[in-house]
Design a protein around this nucleic acid. Structure first.
Length: 227
DNA sequence: GCGACAG
DNA sequence: ATCTTGTCGC
């Protein structure tokens, strides 16, 4: 069954209203697991199509247990702050193909570190009703003390806005650009950072998100050459 | 009015 | 996000 149209409007103004309503369903609380499965989600674009990928890993082994792909037409333009309306429908569809529900989900984007506190990880975390974390490669909103952020892996400094803690800027690897981690749903800033770091090995991106990103690229490549 | 702006 | 090879540096 397709998502109800009112949940994913085609109009930016209506989309912002949906966010204002859903933000009230976000639950910020410590999350201590236990985690047996961690999923990574990512989306890629090919022409007018969205390629959504979810990779489920075993934790703490971080070995791939299953993956799924969904392709759908792009439903919304890219508008800063409304990313989930562009990738959300495809992501929800790909999750319907996942056999074992993951205990935790890592998204490529913001959690509550968003203008209306409903980045893609918060939005989809609520709809999927699962602990979710936003792991973004760059900042959308919020400020942080750049000088206070150490260069060593594990270093972190709070990302705030008007005194509110939105998440943290985290060094996932020594001497690499930091990640912007924020809770999406059913976790808080500290646990979000801890779980994210627990999924980081030798790369800047945590394994779940990194593998989903790689898989999305592979599917695009083969889909581009064939039919 | 002038920037900033996840992917 | 996407168009794209080799190359510099830890």
């Amino acid at each position: 069954m397709a998502a109800a149209p009112e949940e994913f409007p085609t109009d930016p103004a209506a989309a912002r209203e949906v966010q204002e309503g859903l933000r009230q369903r976000v639950r910020l609380e410590p999350y201590h697991g236990p985690v047996e499965r961690v999923a990574g989600v990512d989306a890629a674009f090919l022409g007018d199509q969205v390629v959504a990928v979810v990779v489920v890993l075993r934790f703490p082994e971080l070995t791939v247990e299953e993956e799924a792909v969904a392709v759908r037409p792009v439903p919304f333009p890219y508008v800063p702050g409304l990313l989930s309306f562009r990738e959300g429908p495809a992501v929800l569809e790909v999750f319907r193909a996942v056999a074992n529900p993951p205990d935790l989900i890592l998204f490529d984007g913001q959690g509550i570190a968003h203008p209306r506190r409903l980045g893609i990880a918060a939005h989809l975390g609520v709809l999927l009703d699962r602990p979710a974390i936003g792991v973004a490669k760059s900042r959308l909103t919020g400020t942080f003390d750049e000088g206070a952020l150490g260069a060593e892996k594990g270093a972190r400094v709070p990302l705030t806005e008007a005194g509110e803690v939105l998440g943290a800027v985290v060094r996932s690897r020594t001497n690499v650009r930091p990640l912007f981690v924020s809770p999406g749903h059913r976790c808080d800033a500290d646990s979000a950072v801890d779980w994210t770091l627990a999924c980081c090995t030798r790369y800047r991106l945590p394994e779940p998100t990194r593998l989903a990103d790689r898989r999305a690229g592979e599917h695009k490549r083969e889909r581009r050459s064939h039919g």
